[in-house]
């Protein structure tokens, strides 16, 4: 019941390792390509970069089933990729094109893809947490053993929505996996300025919920922790809080000059970049060869380029989108 590091550290199968590494590289390539386009003025868009945090969706993406649900945030493009949302839908929505997940109407912060289990993405910090509880309630009502993962930041754990959602999930013992992507900053404010606890995982204690602090830069650690939490949830064992400690390399938004960020801190985090770190581990342990890893690197870049080209070739939304998907019956609705 107390917050400690998640226990399992068993090796993963080569298939899982390949999936973990692929998600990381693909997410990073997508993030990089979007930032590059924004900074060069190739297109107008806003993203909240996830570069540095890829090990988390790699881990939960491999641990969850495709029918398991995900709720995430504006900083969740990597989560979407980990859960299997098609790249064109993600990039298309960020760029506001007709091929986007919501044909440009939602934007970066509001991408959903129920086919991949992504039921909600919010720009309102903390708002997704109670919704995850409702998704889990529905699963139970339907008699399904699927689970719900909800991602949010460290800052979000200071919202009322977070605490209300945690309490409700615990009271009703619902299969929710609360995944805090603790990147140690909320916008420009370091975590220590806004909470008087050392570990977000400790927040689980207040709700008699298992809570674990996990190395969020180690995809295998995340994979094991989420697998274990999912197993518990499916078996009726209720919710789990996982605090995945990581870092945000590119600031709050694409183009953030990060004036508030001590240079040594960023440099240290970048030196421990989870992607080369995992790559080295896979090579050293012989789980995947240099050839295989290089192929993954190249394929991922290729996939991102292909998706980006498809998006760039796609038209903007039709003007009549404003009259679509509003009320189903538009009679009496003001224009």
């Amino acid at each position: 019941m107390t917050s400690t590091a998640a226990k399992t550290s068993a090796p993963v199968t080569p298939d899982v390792a390949r999936q973990l590494y692929t998600t990381m590289v693909l997410s990073a390539a997508c993030d990089e390509r979007l930032r590059q386009g924004i900074s060069r003025g190739e297109f107008a868009a806003t993203i909240w970069p996830s570069r540095g945090q890829e090990a988390i969706p790699a881990g939960f993406g491999a641990a969850l089933r495709s029918d398991d649900r995900l709720v995430t945030t504006y900083r969740g493009l990597h989560d979407m990729i980990g859960k299997g949302v098609p790249l064109v839908e993600v990039i298309g929505e960020v760029l506001g094109r007709r091929v986007g997940a919501s044909r440009g109407k939602g934007g970066t912060m509001h991408i959903t893809c129920p086919e991949a289990g992504v039921m909600l993405c919010t720009g309102i910090v903390g708002a997704g947490v109670p919704v995850a509880v409702g998704l889990a309630l529905a699963a139970r009502q339907e008699g399904s053993d699927r689970v719900v993962a909800v991602c949010f930041g460290d800052g979000a754990t200071n919202t009322g929505s977070f605490h209300e959602g945690m309490n409700l999930a615990s009271t009703w013992q619902l299969p929710v996996i609360f995944i805090c992507q603790n990147n140690l900053f909320a916008e420009m404010t370091p975590i220590g300025e806004t909470m008087h606890i050392d570990q977000v995982a400790d927040r689980a204690l207040a709700y008699a919920m298992p809570g674990f602090r996990v190395d969020g830069n180690d995809p295998e650690a995340v994979y094991h922790a989420v697998s274990e939490a999912a197993e518990r949830g499916r078996a009726g064992g209720g919710p789990t809080l996982l605090e995945c400690v990581t870092f945000r390399f590119k600031g709050h938004y694409a183009g953030d000059p990060q004036r508030y960020m001590p240079a040594e801190r960023l440099a240290a985090a970048e030196a421990a970049d989870p992607i080369p770190r995992y790559r080295r581990k896979l090579l050293e342990t012989g789980v995947l060869s240099e050839e295989v890893l290089t192929a993954i690197d190249e394929q991922s870049k290729g996939q991102v380029d292909e998706a980006m080209n498809a998006v760039l070739a796609a038209p903007p939304p039709e003007p009549d989108e404003l009259d679509k998907d509003f009320f189903l019956d538009m009679k009496g609705i003001p224009t």
């Binding site: 107008a44 929505e93 506001g96 094109r97 044909r103 440009g104 109407k105 939602g106 934007g107 970066t108 912060m109 509001h110 903007p316 939304p317 003007p319 989108e321 404003l322 509003f326 609705i333 003001p334 224009t335």
Partner: peptide
């Protein structure tokens, strides 16, 4: 503003 949630895509947003 038109009676719509505000769309993200620039052209649509301007139309609102």
């Amino acid at each position: 503003a038109r009676f719509r949630p505000i769309p993200a895509a620039r052209g649509l947003e301007q139309a609102v």
